[in-house]
């Protein structure tokens, strides 16, 4: 059996809130994502799914436990764990082409290589005619396409996606979900995708990891074996959806009770 692409062992993350109280964001997380697997982290706000993703990305390391990505312990952020953010996080002062080229320029690749790769990626994501536009002139969906092109340029085996389509309308979202599936198949990426969209997780993932609300633990792992492209209206899809909705709503209720208690 090959080694997992991403491995979390006994991962804990404790934050200290401004009033001095300890908040356990993650408790004893065990997760292994195999090479080429598409895994969704699903749960309500506050379940620690983004915290786990940020820990794997190296932005905020765990308080205890072990995180391994691409066979190396995670100690800092790096281009081998490319991340797509919900807020797009494009550099507004760079054109679309410059945004995509930035990671390659940091790597110090020769200019011709960069130009060729950027041209190919812009074409792949139907962005060629916007190469010289600034991000402010693009719609949300187009911006997220640029962000995806930017991380694909890094040639990272892992893609971390933090609610990337949360701010988009339903039609644009479906369009980009299909785009991500196409890229995942074509480039054989390992994808860890954070979402609170139940349908989105079933549409995309090989496995859906449902997380509990505070402390964040792995509640259940649900394998999705439906053939792709998946039909969101099929009875099988909706059976899974019902099951996952029950699981997520339990946590959502705990989240709401907690909010009410805090006032």
């Amino acid at each position: 059996m090959s080694a997992p692409q991403i491995l979390a062992e006994a991962v804990n993350k404790v934050f200290r809130s401004p009033d001095g109280q300890e908040v356990v964001a993650l408790r004893d997380i065990e997760l292994a994502v195999e090479p080429g697997e598409f895994v969704c982290l699903l749960g309500p706000s506050g379940c620690g799914k983004s915290t786990l993703l940020n820990a794997i990305a190296g932005f905020s390391l765990p308080t205890s436990g072990r995180l391994v990505a691409n066979g190396r312990a995670v100690v800092e952020p790096g281009p081998d764990r490319a991340m797509v953010f919900q807020e797009y996080a494009l550099f507004p002062w760079m054109t679309v082409a410059k945004n995509v080229a930035f990671g390659l320029e940091i790597k110090g690749e020769p200019k011709e290589t960069i130009d060729r790769k950027v041209g190919d990626l812009l074409q792949l994501l139907s962005l060629s005619e916007f190469a010289n536009s600034f991000p402010k002139d693009l719609s949300g969906g187009m911006r997220q396409r640029v962000a995806i092109a930017r991380v694909l340029a890094l040639d990272s085996p892992i893609l971390l996606m933090d609610e990337p389509f949360g701010a988009l309308d339903a039609l644009t979202r479906r369009n980009l979900q299909d785009e991500v599936l196409r890229i995942w198949t074509e480039f054989k990426k390992t994808i860890l995708f954070v979402t609170h969209g139940i349908e989105e997780s079933i549409y995309l993932a090989d496995r859906v990891v449902v997380m509990t609300y505070r402390p964040g633990t792995v509640k259940t792992v649900v394998p999705i074996t439906l053939r792709r492209p998946r039909d969101t209206a099929s009875p099988e899809f909706n059976d899974i959806k019902r099951h996952l909705t029950d699981l997520v709503m339990e946590e959502q209720r705990r989240h709401e009770e907690d909010e009410i208690r805090k006032g």
Binding site: R81, A82, M83, F85, F91, W93, G103, I106
Partner: peptide
Amino acid sequence: SIYVRAARNLGAKGSVMFRRVILPAAA
């Protein structure tokens, strides 16, 4: 901070981070 996080994720550090991210963002 989102620009800094994105740039670190892309591998930017030190002077590249300063010249290409901090400086234009502060412009």
